[in-house]
Nucleic acid binder design. Structure first.
Lengths: 355, 355
DNA sequence: AGGGTTCATGTATGCGCTTACAGGAAGCGC
DNA sequence: GCGCTTCCTGTAAGCGCATACATGAACCCT
């Protein structure tokens, strides 16, 4: 790899000063055409590539935005086969990555992504925050304190997070209308399909999303005079297909009348349930209605197609970038924004709608 | 955003020198516990986050790996609804991103991703290469010359690219066995299912992948004494669901005997075809067999499930990182590697295999 | 011819950090 | 008490670039 060429090398070779070399890249018009070409020629011969680090240091900006997200699966647990579950599991963050990448590109930024390495030597934030102009974090990804520190000196936006009550509410925040969406979907099941015996399968207690959805569910039930406990009928942890399948199993095997509808806190679990139900010969939606939440592409592809609530995950990422970009271009002083992106109920086959 | 604290601020506040502050982060054990805590305390109070740029400059390494990939879709063409196609379209690069991200994380690297902005001010490589320790490019992403320059001073691996004949063959290169896979799948259709009237739907002429697949197809046909022209029966461009649907339509409407099997150069087109066929009341696999290529999760979810060739896209990304890491840890001098990852034929319902 | 402009380039400094190297303090054996 | 280690910390020199400022040439106008 020999020694890496620098401005000095290019300057020497083309007989100009380093300042001129720098100008050729930063403000080409300010350099006489002839000189410019000489410099570029020398750069080409040397294989010169400007150092982003040096540039960043000198100009105090990197042209890079960041995204920190949780470490879904153990990176060391390599599953040779059957990474199917996984394929789906990560779609959520994939969508956000895509959204951010796109929006970032539009604004001329690149995207640095890093998943939290549980207890790595360097903290995630140190790694990301130190290299970007601003970044987004998927809620619960990094320690509050670190976020705190980082956000004192650069824009940070929290995605899909703690919601209104968080202690991070001085930061920009983007969430989706979990509660509204679930309430609306539930209302649909109750009013439009006339169902009364519903079962809600939630997630772990920590997940603010799952909790908000449960609240929406309860509200709709309450509005219809259906009694619901303080807790979901079942909790799945993690919220995977496998757990969803198991949950369906359990709901089926419970004594008493089986539910008319299984309302899952996310699509993955619902899809898992679909598998179980098919295997057990339970017809969907004739025998039982199934719904999810998220609007993963996956849900459109299973049979029966999944009724769900579509989260605009991609646009979550895009909005995050927009927010960051705005802060970076002068809006630092504005008061913290808290967006709640609307969701839409998507009726497909699994709830009994004609389609 | 006030002024960003630096080592100097932390040093002053904690009464040590900047070297000690640096050591606290780089080699904590080399600093007396008491001193270390004083420093960390000061850092916390100030909200200090080490500058990645400065660190990179001084230590000549960034801890970041990069990925450049093509600009699939026009970022400005926002489709409010019906981004369905798109959801699937990007799965390919998504998978690679995931693979890289994981592997990178394992090795303690973060991942910088950037799609080529067609004719942006700064070239993609300049943007990425200058900020990372090494990077991968999806073939055809950046100009050969730029790659050339970058690869002279840092590891670069080309993914799924020009193959054996490229002029970039002094670079590390990872491809998948397109030809072998398509040959094997085609052989399966001919020998195991006894089909003889096949139709191959390829992609644009530029795509080396699609071309290689067509070659594999031809080889299998030739081996079975089936005559095939020099060109695919149909070319789809782009290789999307919509185009696949249209291709199926065309194959159906062509005069003469319809094909017994539609062999598509990728999964997306095959899935599009599946839709068309269902709509037209043509049964799969009873009336016509359909196959894809790629092994997208999508293929497992459609009905009938798609017989295809699974590309290890995730592992493509992982291998890329492994290669980069190896080069970075002393293997610079090794001769260029050219991996061809094996693919596997995945028989599902759409070819008539019991499942 | 002299003063004022404009344009192109060079000089010099600093961005925030890492890291050899040096130096002082403390502990050891003799 | 002396020399030798060992351990911890400070000093200082860059890393590669951007950029304010200085410089000088060419030009225009009076």
């Amino acid at each position: 790899m020999s020694t890496v060429p620098t401005v000095y090398d290019v300057a020497e070779r083309s007989g100009v000063s380093i300042a001129t070399v720098s100008r050729v890249y930063r403000t080409p018009e300010s350099v006489r055409l002839q000189t410019r070409m000489r410099v570029l020629e020398a750069a080409r011969e040397l294989g010169y590539v400007p150092s982003g680090n040096a540039r960043g240091l000198a100009s105090r900006s990197t042209g890079v935005l960041g995204l920190c997200f949780p470490d879904y699966s153990d990176p060391d647990a390599e599953h040779e086969v059957g990474d199917d579950e996984d394929d789906v599991a990560m779609l959520y963050s994939d969508q956000i990555i895509r959204g951010m990448e796109r929006a970032a590109r539009r604004h001329g930024y690149a995207l640095l992504i890093a998943a939290s390495l549980k207890g790595g030597p360097e903290s995630l934030v140190a790694k990301v925050a130190g290299r970007v102009d601003g970044f987004a974090v998927l809620a619960e990804t990094v320690s509050t304190e670190e976020l705190e520190a980082a956000s004192r000196h650069q824009p940070v936006v929290v995605l899909a997070g703690p919601g209104e009550d968080g202690q991070l509410d001085h930061l920009d925040h983007i969430a989706v209308a979990n509660r509204d969406g679930q309430r609306e979907l539930t209302r649909h099941l109750i009013e439009d399909h006339g169902l009364r015996r519903l079962a809600f399968v939630g997630g772990d207690k920590i997940s603010p999303d799952a909790q908000a959805r449960f609240h929406g569910y309860r509200e709709a039930c309450a509005a219809a005079g259906i009694v619901v406990g303080d807790e979901p009928d079942l909790r799945a942890d993690p919220m995977t297909q496998a757990e969803g399948a198991r949950a369906a199993e359990e709901l089926l095997d419970r004594g008493g009348q089986p539910p008319q509808a299984m309302v899952f806190a996310n699509d993955q679990m619902a899809v898992g349930a679909l598998h179980t139900l098919e295997r057990r010969g339970v017809r969907v939606p004739e025998d039982v209605v199934v719904t999810g939440f998220d609007g993963l592409p996956l849900g459109r592809l299973v049979r029966p197609a999944l009724t769900t609530v579509r989260q605009p995950m991609r646009s979550l990422g895009e909005q995050a970038v927009e927010l960051l970009v705005r802060r970076l271009s002068g809006g630092q002083a504005e008061s913290p924004r808290s967006l709640v992106l609307p969701v839409t109920v998507v009726c497909r086959e699994s709830c009994g709608c004609s389609r």
